[in-house]
Design a protein around this nucleic acid. Structure first.
Length: 276
DNA sequence: CCCTCTGTTGGATT
DNA sequence: CAATCCAACAGAGG
């Protein structure tokens, strides 16, 4: 379930898994994974970029992958591979000869171990750019990273001058990048702000509270105990969230009941009791 | 078995 | 600028 924290975990996995044995090859098991751009459409498949990426990885010289928002950049010599996990993308490590379910591409290590990109719904993909353009490509059209470049209350207020509902605006990656549907709802619960409020209507105090809540929420999800054991917090049976997916349940902070509604095509959850 | 509904992403269209 | 549609599937529920 990639939002910024999961993408950061994926980045660390790539860095960690490629450190003990170098990546020497890239095998594409679903050609549609390589796109003309970092879009969410497999129909944008780019055969030429695919070959360039494979050749670059074979030439070796990988660097530590970098992240901006939900995008990852990984440089191999002259070529940069941009990665977006889409909705269901993730990296898993498998022994030589093993193929995971929904495997779309695999960075093959010298020792045979595969670092697999798996993506059931195929919204995720790679795009290939010259190495020198990686930084710019990662930032193109995006605001500051919600975790690495936290904004203070005043900066947030300036970036969110809109009548749109604050929760919807938080998903605009050009204002700040990294907030997704789940953590936008959770961050607003943390600071007690009603997600349906027009962004413009927030007070100075509320902007300060939100500025603090955003990195706090994101950081809380990045579990960093043993890179080999890393698990997506949003996987598994239990719902780890305070409001997301809890429509009809009692609020953990007051005696209210969590409600939900669609905003901008996505479901939002909040507690009317303590989010004003 | 089959049909309907929902969905963490973002881009394109209206 | 903003609301809506859509991509391509899995999975859950009726």
């Amino acid at each position: 379930m990639p939002e910024l924290p999961e993408v950061e975990i994926a980045r660390r996995q790539l860095a960690h898994w490629s450190s003990s044995s170098p990546v020497v090859d890239l095998e594409i098991t679903d050609p549609a994974v390589v796109r003309t751009k970092l879009s969410t459409r497999p129909s944008d498949a780019d055969p030429q970029a695919l070959r360039a990426a494979v050749d670059a990885v074979r030439l070796g010289c990988d660097t530590t992958p970098i992240r901006h928002g939900k995008r990852i950049g990984w440089i191999f010599g002259e070529i940069g591979i941009l990665i977006h996990l889409g909705m269901t993308g993730q990296f898993v490590r498998r022994a030589a000869g093993e193929t995971p379910r929904f495997g779309r591409a695999v960075f093959r290590r010298e020792d045979g171990v595969g670092i697999w990109f798996c993506d059931a719904r195929r919204f995720g993909g790679f795009a290939v750019v010259p190495a020198g353009e990686v930084q710019a490509a990662l930032r193109a059209g995006h605001g500051p990273d919600a975790l690495l470049e936290p904004q203070n209350g005043q900066e947030l207020a300036e970036r969110f001058q809109t009548k749109k509902a604050i929760k919807v605006a938080l998903l605009d990656q050009h204002r700040i990048t990294g907030m997704g549907n789940i953590h936008a709802a959770e961050a607003l619960f943390l600071c007690g702000i009603d997600p349906t409020r027009p962004a413009q209507s927030l007070s100075v105090t509320e902007w300060d509270a939100l500025a603090e809540a955003i990195p706090r929420q994101l950081r809380s999800v990045i579990v960093d105990e043993g890179l080999d054991e890393m698990v997506y917090v949003t996987q598994g049976g239990d719902n780890p969230f305070k409001v997301y997916g809890r429509s009809g349940e009692l609020c953990v902070r007051c005696d209210g009941t969590i409600v939900s509604a669609k905003h901008g095509g996505r479901s939002t959850f909040w507690c009317p009791g303590c989010q004003q």
